[in-house]
Simulated scan of single mutants.
Amino acid sequence: MSDLTGELIDNRYLLQRQIASGGMATIYAGLDTRLDRPVAVKIMHAHLANDEAFVSRFIKEAKATAALSHPNIVSIQDQGWNEGGPPAVFLVMELVEGSTLRDYLNENGSLTVEQTLQLITPVLSALSAAHRIGIIHRDIKPENILISKDGRIKVADFGLARNIAMGQTMTAESSVVLGSVSYLSPEQVQRGVADARSDIYAIGIVLFEMLTGDKPYSGETPIQIAYRHVNDRIPNIQTINSAIPASVAELVYEVTAPNPDQRPKDAEELLSKLKEIQAKIDPKRRQMSLELDLPPVVSKKSKRGKVSVTSAFGGIKEKTSQLISSKPININKPEDSIRTKKR
């Protein structure tokens, strides 16, 4: 897809610079010229924009996701078809400035149990809000968990354009899926279907990676990784790190069960289990909502010139009770949606 930097989309959104490009779309940092505010604009690739069924589903799910209003969800602000310029199906989203969980894992390898529980709580809060109204994410992974420079956790890409049959995905879109297949549930791989329990499985894989620093399975192709999700059992993480509390290890083992009936039914149930574990691990901890994420700290620059995600955890023990305001954000390293150039 040609670079559309400098184009005015829908006579309103000025595309200022390309943030990322994936197999389905290119993301631009832009300016809403009507309201004079920064936005992220997702432009679908032409081969998908010409698929009427895909576009219809994309618009339907964008409208459904726009109904979500939650401090830990990247908000959708507009969608449409560009007229009077380059043909483009577009989606306008909140622009989040900071980094991703993937960036943190790349820099640090793993998180402590305390950091893991602190970070995953707002993610589950966001998923709970979605599951309550029947919206499934379908693509939970570290690249879609954003950490703003003021500590806010945001989940991006709720259910948008993810209903691609696995057979098609493994061929024409294999480069897209390589980054996502590590988090796909067995039922998504085998039957191409997903419900709230599929999101729970993905959360389990993310927890596994956060606590160990590695994904449970690796492979050179998406097929190899998908095969293992279907045919192997993800190990109990205590066999990898015996210092992880048994209650945490057992929960991760439960949520990654191959049979969806053996997992928590939705994010609300998982969040309840997680809070029980937190209370047992630290009975004296202050009882408060953790949905407003990590404590705000002075931003540090990493060697790559980005906001260091490590700094977001700097005051976690002392300042977790502080409320954090949500500021516009500029994603530096996304995957297919508001992030990465390569899956």
Rank of each mutant, 00 (worst) to 15 (best):
T116H: 13
L117V: 10
L117I: 11
L117S: 05
Q118F: 15
Q118H: 15
Q118N: 15
L119V: 15
L119C: 11
L119M: 13
L119W: 06
I120S: 05
T121S: 15
T121G: 08
P122K: 08
P122R: 07
P122T: 11
V123M: 12
V123Q: 06
V123Y: 04
V123K: 04
L124F: 12
A126Q: 03
A126G: 11
L127P: 01
L127S: 03
L127D: 01
S128I: 04
A129T: 10
A129D: 00
A129V: 10
A130F: 01
A130C: 09
H131P: 02
H131M: 02
H131K: 04
H131Q: 02
H131C: 03
R132T: 11
R132N: 14
R132A: 13
R132M: 13
G134H: 10
G134W: 05
G134L: 09
I136S: 00
I136Y: 00
H137R: 01
D139E: 07
D139V: 00
D139R: 04
D139H: 03
I140D: 00
I140Y: 02
K141P: 03
K141F: 09
K141N: 12
P142V: 05
P142W: 05
P142T: 10
E143S: 15
E143I: 08
E143R: 12
N144C: 10
I145Y: 02
I145L: 14
L146I: 08
L146T: 01
S148G: 13
S148Y: 01
K149H: 14
K149N: 13
K149V: 12
K149C: 10
K149E: 12
K149R: 15
K149D: 11
D150T: 15
G151H: 06
G151E: 06
G151K: 02
